[in-house]
């Protein structure tokens, strides 16, 4: 659904604005890496731009820290509609290993609405290209969603085991 919309909304070249909201540099280097000759994202017409006002897409890396929080919001507002937001890396996905530290707000979705998340620490350049291509409907989705159900802990099983254990204790006492 969103992929179809994206195809309509972004029929031509996609310009991306990269916003580092307190990342460790790992994801940022991989984002720059997709520009280099091996990965060469410009063959899809995508490129990085310096100003959010030129961009269609915002790539956020890093667990949004307190000082960058209002700035990320401002950068998001500066991007003209229609726009897409990608969270790149585990930190942007949910705050990473410091999700609840005193200086971290915990993930890009706390600051701005995030449309797609590319996980990894850091994600490979291929993963970034695949994620963006998937969003634009350039490739087919390879994985189907898996539904996880909450399973209740089998209480009877626990009681049964306990009964067996207790029975063993009784036998031990009797045999003594």
């Amino acid at each position: 659904m969103l992929a179809k919309l994206c195809k309509k909304a972004f029929p031509r070249s996609l310009w991306a604005y990269h916003c580092n909201a307190g990342a460790c540099n790992g994801c940022d280097i991989e984002i720059l890496n997709v520009l280099t000759p091996y990965y060469d994202i410009e063959r899809f017409g995508m490129k990085l731009v310096a100003s959010p006002r030129h961009a269609d897409v915002m790539l956020i890396s890093g667990a949004v820290t307190r000082p960058t929080f209002p700035l990320v919001k401002k950068a998001y507002e500066a991007i003209p509609e229609p726009k897409l937001v990608f969270g790149i890396g585990s930190c942007a996905a949910g705050g990473g290993c410091w999700f609840d530290c005193y200086n971290v707000t915990g993930g890009a979705d706390k600051a701005v609405p995030v449309n797609y998340i590319i996980p990894g620490c850091p994600p490979r350049p291929e993963a970034i290209i695949y994620g963006v291509a998937l969003a634009l409907g350039l490739v087919e989705k390879k994985a189907s969603p898996v539904e996880l159900k909450q399973v209740e802990f089998p209480v009877d099983m626990y009681l049964k085991n306990k009964a067996y254990e207790e029975r063993d204790v009784i036998y031990q006492v009797l045999n003594r």
């Binding site: 307190g22 410091w98 530290c101």
Partner: peptide, 11 residues
């Protein structure tokens, strides 16, 4: 600066 401070020593 100090905008990438994540409080990792404390953690």
């Amino acid at each position: 600066g100090f905008m990438v401070h994540r409080g990792l020593e404390k953690l």
